[in-house]
Design a binder for these strands. Structure first.
Lengths: 353, 353
DNA sequence: TGACATAACTAAATCCATTTAGCAAAACCC
DNA sequence: GGGTTTTGCTAAATGGATTTAGTTATGTCA
């Protein structure tokens, strides 16, 4: 007989007990592997196990925990929610910071559980348990798309929330100082003497990315009266970035300055530019984002004007704890100015001189 | 009066109720924000909230969930456990694969929660809840150090476990085919004509990494009777790899072939080698690991003989589900042969010819 | 002033699993 | 054959929060 797990309604130890003809206590003892010290007959153990398998029993962790929980201990369940499609290192930093904070605050009466959980970009609303008040004590949400923001703006999550990377009404938010990245990127490229700047980004835009592009264009328009060419690649993978630039160059596109919205796109672009017989920064200056610490080790090292992850995280984590503690006066919105690293990828003077 | 949360034993709604002089039902209504429809007087709401804050109330999620749980639904809590110190991409892939599997199997009566959780390398035993049977329905553990393996070998985790990347007695394991990576790396370098091969690795070694180094050396010894030089860098960051190679070259060390155990070390080494005035692969051939898909976009593209993440994950995830389903006959150990990508970083003929 | 409605609660059942104390039957012992 | 031990279970309490049905006091209306 096949296991019914999954296809039928869930089963409790009471139903197993009834099915076998013993008490729930006996079933519990067996399923918790306590049957030896509780002196359950071997034959009974076998029958209980068989019934559990047949009925597709899955233990209810809430029930177990409630009973087993060493009372007198507060347990906080914290999570970082991010989209599947976003790069993980950023989230990793957030988790590190959160864990560090938690390690400090853990004591005899207070324990923390921290985890990364993921949602499909644009479908945060389908994430199970998000609207329930019985899952998280607090969360940090990041890498949302406009659809997700829409959902959040209309929803009320019944626990403390910090949004990283965007501004959503009625939430505590930590985000990049608006316009800064776009403006500085444009300035760096213009200072390098670029006349034909191109933006390389993926199909779906987060709020932060949109702002970067807008500010970039605005700054360019102010000075040169001409907007940048925007190249849209299918995704954020290096090969996708490479393919996009390759196609652009093959089509005779002009290019002497590039603003890539992620590291991975930048390194893909590097490949396409070099293979097109052009040099960086001699022919093309490149500005990007320092998502990974690898950006410094690209060849040539990538100039980055964004990637304020460390700084954002450093604000977001204490903010979450302040809200958890019930401090009402915490700032609703924290703006972070990303560090700028001017490296060889935009240093036309040095390589030409 | 300061909040006592954290310093004193945990508080339940019953204690708040007693403190305020109302029933637990009233407290629950207020703390769940149901006070309007339940018609709790504003003054009472205020007093309950004040007491909750004063006593440092933290809701017990197990209690809430138990009650709120839409019964007739099985909930599986799955986790991927990894160390803080390990690179995230592997974990990200595992999570994607797990989520895909879970998305397929989710239905009216079965829900899944998947999360990444982290432990400090070597201190898996300090991870709270690991030995409790009330936390996970199943886990995948990866990036363990020998201390962790020791702990696992002696412990019994009361739920299904799949170990990725190493072999531990009495556990289901998915790992790299032993010796393969080390042997092939050595062969690739020897085929490229390298006479002075060097291994670059970090201070702490996972089982997989140890095996890679041993097999590398064994293969080298078989053919050349001379072992490789092992360079130990402080960590796995690019700058640490760069510093190590730089120091080695500065000290007059000989180097025409390099085996780096991670991408990040390889790209650090690239920098040091180029800055030392040598070319890759002309002067130095480099073999590494394809942790990130960025390896293909290094300059020159990195030859990789490891990084079987996709393949490992593709085995580990279905294995976990088979165990969860109670299939006893699943293989205890699955060996995965990593794909080999020979790229320009070891292609001496092509660049010299 | 009595019928009825409303406000502001409370009592008790419920969710699921675990565990302790206890009980009946069988086995053992001299 | 009466007392003791062992075996193999069961009844019931427990953990923390939620919710439904019910209760009391107060207010409203005719």
């Amino acid at each position: 007989m096949p296991s019914k797990s999954g296809s039928s309604p869930a089963v409790t130890i009471y139903e197993i007990a009834e099915h076998v003809g013993v008490s729930p206590a006996a079933v519990s003892s067996v399923l918790a592997n306590r049957h030896v010290e509780r002196r359950i007959a071997e034959e009974t153990v076998r029958r209980i196990r068989a019934a559990a398998a047949e009925l597709g029993y899955v233990p209810n962790m809430a029930g177990r925990r409630l009973r087993a929980h060493r009372s007198a201990t507060r347990q906080f369940d914290l999570a970082i929610l991010t989209s599947f499609e976003a790069p993980l290192p950023l989230v990793g930093q957030a988790l590190h910071a959160l864990q560090r904070a938690v390690d400090v605050q853990t004591n005899e009466h207070t324990r923390y559980a921290v985890a990364i959980e993921m949602f499909h970009a644009g479908r945060l609303k389908d994430k199970p348990g998000l609207l329930d008040s019985n899952r998280y004590h607090g969360v940090i949400i990041t890498n949302t798309l406009p659809e997700d923001d829409q959902f959040l703006a209309n929803a009320h999550l019944p626990y403390p929330v910090v949004i990283m990377g965007r501004r959503i009404a009625n939430y505590y938010c930590v985000l990049e100082a608006p316009d800064f990245v776009g403006r500085r990127s444009a300035e760096v490229l213009m200072d390098a003497g670029c006349k034909h700047s191109v933006i390389l980004h993926g199909r779906s835009l987060t709020q932060t990315t949109s702002n970067r592009l807008e500010a970039f264009n605005r700054t360019l328009m102010e000075r040169t009266k001409r907007p940048a060419t925007a190249l849209v690649s299918d995704g954020l993978l290096p090969q996708q970035g490479a393919a996009t630039i390759e196609a652009y160059l093959a089509g005779g596109g002009r290019l002497d300055g590039l603003f890539a919205v992620t590291d991975s796109l930048a390194i893909g672009a590097y490949r396409a530019i070099k293979q097109g017989g052009r040099s960086i920064p001699g022919d093309v200056a490149v500005v990007g984002v320092g998502d990974y610490d690898l950006a410094e080790y690209f060849d040539p090292p990538l100039t980055t004007v964004a990637g304020a992850n460390d700084a954002m995280v450093a604000e977001a984590v204490p903010l979450l704890f302040r809200i958890l503690r019930g401090e009402k006066h915490a700032l609703r919105e924290v703006l972070v100015v990303p560090p700028v690293f001017v490296r060889d990828s935009t240093n036309k003077l040095r390589t030409q001189g």
